[in-house]
Simulated assay, not measured.
Amino acid sequence: MDAVGSVHRFYREHHRPGPGHAFHVQVEQTDLWVRADADLSRQTHDLVLTFRRQILQYGRTFPDFLTSLMPLPEDPLAPEIVRRMLRAGLQVGVGPMAAVAGAIAQAVAEGLLPWTTSVIVENGGDCYAVAQEALVVAVYPGKNSPFRDRLALKLAAEDLPMAVCTSSGSLGHSLSFGRADAATVLSKDAALADACATALGNRIQHPDDLEPALTWIQSIPGVLGALAIMHDRLAAWGHIALTSP
């Protein structure tokens, strides 16, 4: 769905130790890194199964849901995670599966809250975080980028929960029609952040496209900030606090 099972998630090797317990859960293509107050692997596995089943069953009923690169109509009878994906696609102008990684990350994080006060779920580079302390989220624009290992976003405790989702046209497995090294979006809605990251990246074919793309994303309600990188140029807008990793 959101990732190929054999992908080597090299960026996870750079996670810094933090409070709580970190663990991995993989169900077919869905491969999560989670940090919570305790080892909630079983609960996370059950939640992933539930949300994947809802998405795949809806896709069997409406096959376009899994393949369309264009927005599809909202469906008030669909499961909540599907409604979030449909809504995000409509709002941004992309297919609903552009929001799947973020949607699963948020749904799992929210589903774990009965057992933990803090939780971070990362799904293919898309994160949803609930925490009482400030967090630093690194942005990886590729091994040849001048910004490699130099750039991160600081999320203040009072701004959480928050989704941080990134799309790239130069690395990774995600479908992108652009050439941005990184297109990162912040929102309280992870499905929206994921869809917007895809749409933002799609608009960047040349470094001169960075500023127009950032101007466009300011028009999307619910987006709190965005960052885009191509080659040696960077553009940022909104609630973006840059720091070092």
Rank of each mutant, 00 (worst) to 15 (best):
G102H: 03
Q54T: 04
S118Q: 15
A183I: 02
F65L: 06
T166P: 04
A105F: 11
I81P: 11
K188I: 06
A99T: 13
G89W: 10
V94W: 11
Y128K: 06
D126S: 05
G124F: 07
A138S: 08
S168N: 00
G124I: 11
T184V: 12
S170W: 02
A180P: 03
R60T: 00
F62T: 15
V121M: 14
C127A: 09
V139R: 00
L186V: 04
Y58T: 05
L112V: 13
A98T: 13
V82F: 07
A88Y: 14
T44R: 04
G93E: 08
S174A: 15
A99L: 10
L112W: 08
G102S: 05
Q106M: 06
R83F: 07
E80G: 07
R148I: 01
Q54F: 03
P76R: 05
D75G: 10
G142S: 05
Q43F: 07
S187Q: 12
V130S: 01
P63S: 05
D159R: 15
L72W: 00
H173I: 02
A129N: 01
D126W: 10
V94D: 07
V137G: 02
Q54S: 09
G172F: 04
R179G: 01
D64S: 15
V185K: 14
T117V: 14
L66T: 04
Q106A: 12
S118H: 13
S168H: 04
A78I: 09
L72Q: 10
Q91E: 14
E74P: 07
V108M: 06
V92W: 14
G169Y: 08
A152K: 11
I55M: 00
R150W: 02
M162T: 01
F177E: 02
Q132I: 00
K143Y: 02
L135A: 04
A88L: 14
L112A: 06
T50A: 11
R52V: 03
L135C: 06
L47I: 01
Y140A: 02
P146S: 05
A78H: 13
H173A: 09
P79W: 12
I55V: 10
A103R: 13
Y128Q: 03
T184R: 06
